[in-house]
Design a protein around this nucleic acid. Sequence first.
DNA 1: ATATTTTCTTAACGTCGCGGAAACATACTC
DNA 2: GAGTATGTTTCCGCGACGTTAAGAAAATAT
Lengths: 229, 229
Amino acid sequence: MAGRILIVDDEPAICEMIGFTLAGAGFEYDTAASANEAERKIADRPPDMILLDWMMPGPNGVELARRLSKNSSLREIPIIMLTAKDDERDMLTGFGAGVDDYVTKPFSPPELMARIRAVMRRAVPHATGEMLRVSGLALDPVGHRVEADGEELKLGPTEFRLLQFFMSHAERVYNRTQLIDLVWGPGVYIEERTVDVHIRRLREALAKGGYDRMIQTVRGAGYRFSNRD
Amino acid sequence: MAGRILIVDDEPAICEMIGFTLAGAGFEYDTAASANEAERKIADRPPDMILLDWMMPGPNGVELARRLSKNSSLREIPIIMLTAKDDERDMLTGFGAGVDDYVTKPFSPPELMARIRAVMRRAVPHATGEMLRVSGLALDPVGHRVEADGEELKLGPTEFRLLQFFMSHAERVYNRTQLIDLVWGPGVYIEERTVDVHIRRLREALAKGGYDRMIQTVRGAGYRFSNRD
DNA sequence: ATATTTTCTTAACGTCGCGGAAACATACTC
DNA sequence: GAGTATGTTTCCGCGACGTTAAGAAAATAT
């Protein structure tokens, strides 16, 4: 499970081709044919990165970028602009609007992938699909496996996502509402106590290697993943 | 990293120049002056990579690329397009036809070599037409055969491609959308559940040697090919 | 061309695992 | 010891997956 990327381009053919390239590299992707559609999809489920075409009918790419940069929870999503012209002025306005990098059409798949990886490593390291390791625990997002001291642990989908989140956000307390938002996703409304149940199940699974101690309760505040006791 | 490269260009001078560069880097090479000649030579002895000129009298480069991509044993041969114009539309039709990278004329020998090496590194496992082996399973991309412990297995075209994909992308989870993209090809729209059916058939075929266990279901995420349980 | 076979795709149904809520038990704070 | 926060267990419904069958399409043979 390497990150999800949203491709915004009005030409379906371009979306398709880029999507194919991304899929080959193990990324999930979604497409949007306009800035408006993109905005809806982003609000619905924020991607880990956005590939944004400059020239589009209706609101153009920069406008969308600017609007996103105004939203505090979405401004962190890295954006790569796809632009036909390498006009310096356009690039400058883009950077002002929170664009992280540019790729000039025509581009080759390897070139695009290199840019994507570079930006991702910088902005959202957890979406690169690299192994997460904390002491004896190893989580492989791509292969969907978790190992404790070389021995595989079996955990359900939600426990897997929960552990993945914790391992990439260690040493920090999250309350139940935050966990629901960040692990279940925005727009999912479940009871806060349900989090407890999944914490329990995760602990149970980790107990095999004695790593359940890393899921720590901070009374009145939430939970924390830490390798210190 | 030696390999045989087929240069397809109607201008003998260019063939010669590229060939000289390749030979200097330790590659073997062959040349073809037209798409038709190239097709014959490829059928006769598939090269490890193709350098394909865009503009040629008769059937042009993209057409050849598209024809190759229809042949399951030849579709994996990486292709680098040589194009004089960096026209966006041309590039896109190229990607659809299974082109791996582009080099725009005029190009320098070092640049070309860099691209060749990059594409080869990426495509190595499934490009060379070499046998794919994972534990007792052996898949021969050229001869279109699959053997389990020396005994031949009979599987349909789609199952063959699916297995070929899995064997060259082991230990990685792919969801149904990605599999459709990567095994059926971009621009093919079929029901996600159809993947299940082909997974079933593949498992059924592999069950003969007990290798069905290698096609693993990762609930909520997709499927994975793995020799570990 | 036509017939035959093979294979692909879809749809329908059965099964099973997982998520989520509720209920109860326990621990902590003041 | 009251009140609140968290741990633990259980159970039901939903949804994901497996499986089968049948019609459509494509490939092959006649």
